[in-house]
Amino acid sequence: MITPPKPRPEASAWSRPFWNAAREHQLLLQRCDDCRQWIFYPRIACPHCGSDALGWQQASGRGTIYSYTVVMNNAPSAFAADVPYVVAVIRLEEGVQMLSNIVDCDPATLGCDQPVEVVFRRLDDEYTLPCFRPLAAIGAPR
C-alpha cells in the first residue's frame, strides 16, 4: 500500500496568523480585546461575547495532559509508519484546550495531568505543528 502524504491543516483567513507563528516556533493564541478571554481554535469572532475585536498574544507554551492515548495499530494510512505515536488533549495554562501529539517521550511514563511544554514539528514549507513534550518533574527524572 502506498502511504499517502500527511494531511495538512486547511487554514482559514483568520487562522493564518496561528500557522505563520507556528512556522516561526511561536505559539500564538487569539484573545478578545473586550472580554479578555483566551480563544482556541482561532475564530472569526469571540465565541464568549461575540466581539470581533480579537488580537493575538504569545501563549506560555505550558500546560498539562488532560487525556492521551498511544496509537499502536489500525492508524490512518498516512500515520501507519508513525506507530506508536501519542495523541493528547492539552490544557494550556491560558485555560484553552487543544489536540496535539506528545513527542520526545517514553509513552509508558505518561499520565493525566502531567505538565508539558510546546515544541514544534515541521510538516512542510508552509505548516509546522505545535506538539508537546513532558516537563521534567521533581522525583520523576526522564
Binding site: K6, E10, Y41, V89
Partner: peptide, 26 residues
C-alpha cells in the same frame, strides 16, 4: 473530525474513544 485542528495529528475514531476512556479511568 476537524481537518484543520485534529486530522493533522493523526486523530481518528480509535483515538477519540481512547481519549475519553483514559480520562474516565483516571
Amino acid at each position: 473530525i476537524s481537518a484543520e485542528w485534529e486530522v493533522p495529528f493523526g486523530q481518528h475514531y480509535s483515538t477519540v474513544a481512547a481519549l475519553a476512556t483514559t480520562r474516565f479511568k483516571h
